[in-house]
Design a protein around this nucleic acid. Structure first.
Length: 401
RNA sequence: GCGCCGUUCGCAUAGUGGCUAUUGCAGCGGACUGUAAAUUCGCGGCCCUCUGGGCAUCGCUGGUUCGAGUCCAGCACGGCGCACCA
């Protein structure tokens, strides 16, 4: 496939604000793209867990755009590196994963990212590679020879290592070598460029160094920002409750996006949508709630399609703005045998709605349980009639059948 | 191998042998809202016949004690330092 020389689109892509830094320079890269030169670029993922949030996904969205422009894009699964564990942002050593864990994570990731990046395009599909393919073959002599390209002084400069040294925390030798190992990926695939988050710049630059030495080639490094709350500085992540995970139904995804704090609007618009920047002011001027809905719809559309996005918005309106009940309520049945006061709690536990009977009692006592008609349930041993719809808190709904 | 230190909730932290194991973040629920933020009030192992009661719980196993997260011994895991080897 030939590349697409679309200056407007290329400019928009690099001007959105999602790109933080480009090595050696943005001008050189853009010049290359505008000249119609096809670049081979990869984005690496370490399949250390299964939860992917928008902060990761938006990098893949960026990669997909480069693919659509006719470039050769590679999604690299770090199945080998995942076994080592990247020390980035970890004060302690990450525990090693088993080969089985990694395989499971990878198939899960692939399923989750398929909607946003096209692996099946007829003329220019995104490729999938695994770094065990080449890293697993290196002999000890190869590794030593690779290592000779770096000095301890270069590697130890990394913030993370400095921090650990200061704290007297351990730095294992295999962690120390991580940038080197990751850097070798670039050389093995003979890429022209690497896409990464700003937290990975150190590693990506190690790859740049290796490319220069081994292949005498200037590898570009495109560093994309990390999605963070501009007010609190919190990154999107599970531990601080700001992560939006992509493995959700259209309705849930829409809901998760609406629940984000307002300061996230800007980063979401810039990184996760492709609404033209020229329209940003008019979107934002509608007020945070409407702007958020618009952004949420655009994001849901990417994962689930236009129709699902529209109906997700409608369902959201009906359920939460008007206090209704969603269409797709989970249906549960009480005990097969004799129905007792404990039947409801047991059925809820079976369905995974509540973790224990004690927790159920607590919810009832707190006034969190009500019927469709907004009648509060106050008795934990309440026996609902068939057909009753129960609301537990704001977002748990069940129908008794 | 020797010495020192550590292991308490998802994460982080406190805990002079004493009854109910602290606090923060994250979480859940209520109020107010826009399922926003901020605020505010409440929850916090499990189970029951529920104004009450029972069983658990501080890495593991044993011990001392009327009583152990706390003291002792052993073990496991982790860290730091030293030594040995090279």
């Amino acid at each position: 496939m030939k590349t697409v020389i679309d200056q407007k689109r290329i400019d928009e892509l690099f001007a959105r604000g999602t790109v933080t830094d480009i090595f050696p320079s943005k001008e050189l890269l853009v010049k290359k793209l505008l000249a119609g030169e096809k670049i081979r670029i990869y984005y690496g993922l370490d399949p250390t867990h299964t939860a992917i949030h928008l902060g990761h996904a938006k990098n893949l969205i960026f990669l997909e755009e480069l693919r659509q422009l006719g470039n050769e894009v590679i999604v690299l699964f770090g199945d080998f590196t995942a076994q080592i564990g990247d020390p980035t942002d970890k004060s302690a050593t990450r525990k090693s994963l088993t080969v089985d864990d990694i395989a499971k994570n990878m198939s899960d990731w692939l399923r989750q990212i398929s909607p946003i990046i096209d692996f099946k395009d007829k003329t220019n599909p995104a490729q999938i590679r695994h770094n065990s393919e080449w890293l697993g073959k290196l002999s000890f002599a190869d590794i030593l020879s690779l290592a000779s390209n770096f000095t301890v002084q270069q590697l130890i400069e990394r913030d993370m290592f400095q921090k650990r040294l200061k704290e007297g925390a351990p730095i294992h030798l295999h962690e120390f070598m991580y940038p080197l190992v990751q850097g070798y990926d670039s050389a093995a695939m003979d890429v022209d460029a690497e896409l990464c988050g700003t937290d990975q710049i150190f590693n990506a630059l190690a790859g740049r160094t290796l490319m220069k030495k081994l292949k005498d080639k200037e590898k570009f490094v495109i560093a994309l920002n990390l999605v963070a709350n501009p007010v609190t500085g919190q990154l999107m992540s599970k531990s601080n409750g700001t992560g939006v995970f992509i493995d959700q139904s259209a309705n849930d995804l829409f809901g998760s996006l609406m629940a984000l704090p307002d300061p996230m609007l800007d980063p979401l618009f810039v990184n996760c949508t492709r609404i033209p920047m020229t329209e940003k002011d008019s979107v934002m001027s509608q007020g945070p709630r409407l702007a958020k809905a618009l952004i949420a719809k655009d994001i849901v559309k990417r994962f689930h399609g236009e129709d699902a996005a529209v109906s997700a918005e409608q369902a959201f309106e009906a359920t939460f703005a008007k206090g209704g009940v969603p269409d797709d309520v989970l249906e549960i049945s009480l005990a097969d045998g004799k129905v007792t006061g404990a039947s409801l709690a047991e059925a809820l536990i079976r369905a995974g709605i509540v973790p224990s009977k004690t927790e159920w009692r607590r919810l009832v006592t707190d006034g969190a349980v009500r019927t469709e008609k907004d009648e509060k349930i106050t008795d934990p041993a309440f026996v609902p009639a068939s057909g009753t719809v129960l609301k537990i808190g704001k977002r748990r709904f069940v129908k008794i059948v």
